[in-house]
Design a protein around this nucleic acid. Structure first.
Lengths: 353, 353
DNA sequence: GCTGGAAATGGTAGCGGTATCATAACGGCT
DNA sequence: AGCCGTTATGATACCGCTACCATTTCCAGC
């Protein structure tokens, strides 16, 4: 039986093989892999080439065993917006297999659930926590984590805080850009459906909308603004009251995709065609955006990338902390993109050209 | 600086600690942990107690390093039905951290994508593959995998095949049960929206529906059946033509949630209230089911459990194969559940009681 | 009681990396 | 040239666990 040849397509390339191939010690190879300094540029290059040539990839098990730093990272989520979650998971998963860290996924329902989960984390000996929205926005959670001395990172929208890292897009700018886009299409009466008032990014998106209108010389009007709570139903209701006005808006900007989908349903119910009679756009580009019909024009957040980067930052933070050095939290901003689909067009005109 | 005390809530318990505590060698402890035979019952018990007492948990990194059997498992998905995927991921993740296997997630788009991905798997040295629908249904993929000599497991609906394991619910029985439920509510004209004709489980669900009607003495009618393709849009269209008939059905059973959601939208557009004017139910209980309004009555598959079990079976299969023993593929069936939400009621009556 | 073979247990040597400290090579300076 | 403080590299010892083989224990059978 081929024993030690079972994995990796037939032959196991170790750090020793690479070392021998180049004519250096394994230690030097290790240094190159981990991007440590104190390696001559020339050596680094040779090693890198050998790694490439031999198609070497480090054994995570060995690495985490030797370095004693197999971190346990928990991902806590509370909002069962599965579509968001799954993209997040993809990113996290990718990064965790790269970094060889152990992942624990916990859901917490309701306010008292948070305490339970945190207790559990403590007993599990978790080293750090990844927080997607809406938890990333919660000062209560942040406070609890801080008291436990657990480092954490907020992914996709979180109130910048001096002692926690975060990765997000610029929600204000994104909402601003999307609103500008609607204006550029020719819309003048643009409605807006706000998200949950507790959430910070909901505010930012609202402000971005207002700012874009103002900049274009349009007056933001209260009667064009509906209050939603990030749910489909709330989007449905808010859109209904907005669209039943005498002078109904020609475009509706919902601050997430679920609400936008609800708004589309509401428009349909009122006998309005989307986008011919009313343009409706969303935010996030979750799977909801492309599973309804017409598919939603929306703002895309690179959720997977953000998650991946977030985890990476978290691990770095943990490592820095362990070595006793001070850690300055990083707030990383990623680019968003406006995705044009079938739910938007110029006012009074069909998009299907 | 506390160095070697960084993980697991403060102190690292190793197999040596357990051994010392009991007064045996680490080897014996290892045997107990791995459930090997040739350990006296008495010894086993003492070791088990010590493990409990010291709250020991094995170090996965060390284990997989030493035993050389860290399996790499790939999850290949093609249908970007994110809500389904995320629940699957949750289950897989849970199991993989338990079993200490490395996970690789790959998406493949389109038919030629499959070949690319399989190439990649080969070069990555993957040991086994988890296949969610619709890939789990594809004989082409199964054939390719078989030729590569890669074990795989189909999760949630897969054509039972003699040489591949699978975990699924009984789609026929589930559709049967849901149809019976609608009949029990008093519905007699029950429409059905079929899924993609290529897919096996789509057929099973259709057959379940027919069987239940027949058993209740109702005649299945072709004009009550619409063809869909598992997409929102296709559900919308199919429902539209079904609901515009003179004698429109009082209930619509869509063979997945996306189509059911589309059907709801279509009903709304026609000015019909759900469920007062028409009951609409779905299948799968993906996040779509609870994010639209009214929330969908649907058949729940325990996706996360199924995925977890599937991975476990796959790992077992790999281990068995490695040891050179023959492996008889297992087809595991899990229970489904019918989830009643707001989209269903007795005909001609409002559900909100 | 002694023997032999199976069952139970222990000792040793790594798995593939990295921490740590020692050593060698490299300039910059007097 | 000689000295010294860096900077680059190497040797060694593990990390926690298991494979493998050696050893001990146990008990049946003579």
């Amino acid at each position: 039986m081929a024993r030690k040849v079972s994995r990796r397509g037939g032959n196991i390339v170790t750090i020793h093989d690479v070392a021998r191939h180049v004519g250096v010690s394994p230690m030097t190879v290790s240094r190159v892999i981990n991007g440590e300094k104190n390696v001559r540029e020339e050596t680094r290059k040779k090693v890198a080439e050998a790694i490439e040539a031999l198609n070497y990839s480090p054994n995570m098990a060995a690495r985490s065993l030797a370095s004693q730093d197999s971190s346990r990272i928990a991902l806590i989520y509370s909002n069962p917006s599965m579509s968001f979650l799954s993209e997040l998971l993809l990113g996290i998963l990718h990064q965790s297999s790269q970094s060889g860290c152990q992942l624990i996924i916990e859901s917490c329902e309701g306010p008292e659930g948070v305490a339970d989960v945190l207790d559990k984390l403590k007993s599990l000996g978790v080293d750090g926590v990844v927080l997607p929205p809406p938890l990333s926005d919660s000062t209560r959670v942040a406070k609890a984590l801080r008291e436990m001395g657990l480092p954490f990172v907020g992914v996709a929208t979180s109130r910048p805080s001096p002692d926690a890292a975060s990765v997000s897009i610029d929600d204000f700018k994104a909402a601003f850009a999307m609103t500008q886009r609607l204006i550029a299409l020719g819309h003048r009466r643009i409605g807006f459906i706000k998200g949950n008032p507790n959430s910070y990014y909901s505010q930012l998106r609202h402000e971005g909308y207002i700012a874009a209108l103002t900049k274009a010389g349009l007056t933001p009007e209260d009667k064009l603004i509906g209050q939603g709570y990030f749910t489909y139903r709330s989007g449905f209701d808010a859109a209904e009251s907005l669209l039943m006005r005498d002078e109904r808006p020609t475009a509706l900007f919902a601050s997430n995709d679920d609400m936008a989908a609800g708004a589309v349903a509401s428009a349909h119910r009122l006998g309005l065609d989307v986008p011919r009679d009313v343009t409706i756009v969303g935010f996030d580009d979750t799977s909801m955006a492309s599973s309804v019909w017409p598919e939603l024009t929306t703002v895309r957040q690179p959720i997977s990338d953000m998650a991946s980067l977030g985890l990476k930052m978290l691990l770095e933070q943990i490592r820095t902390r362990r070595s006793g050095q001070p850690y300055a939290p990083v707030h990383e901003i990623r680019d968003f993109a406006i995705i044009e689909r079938q739910s938007s067009s110029a006012p009074g005109e069909d998009a299907t050209d």
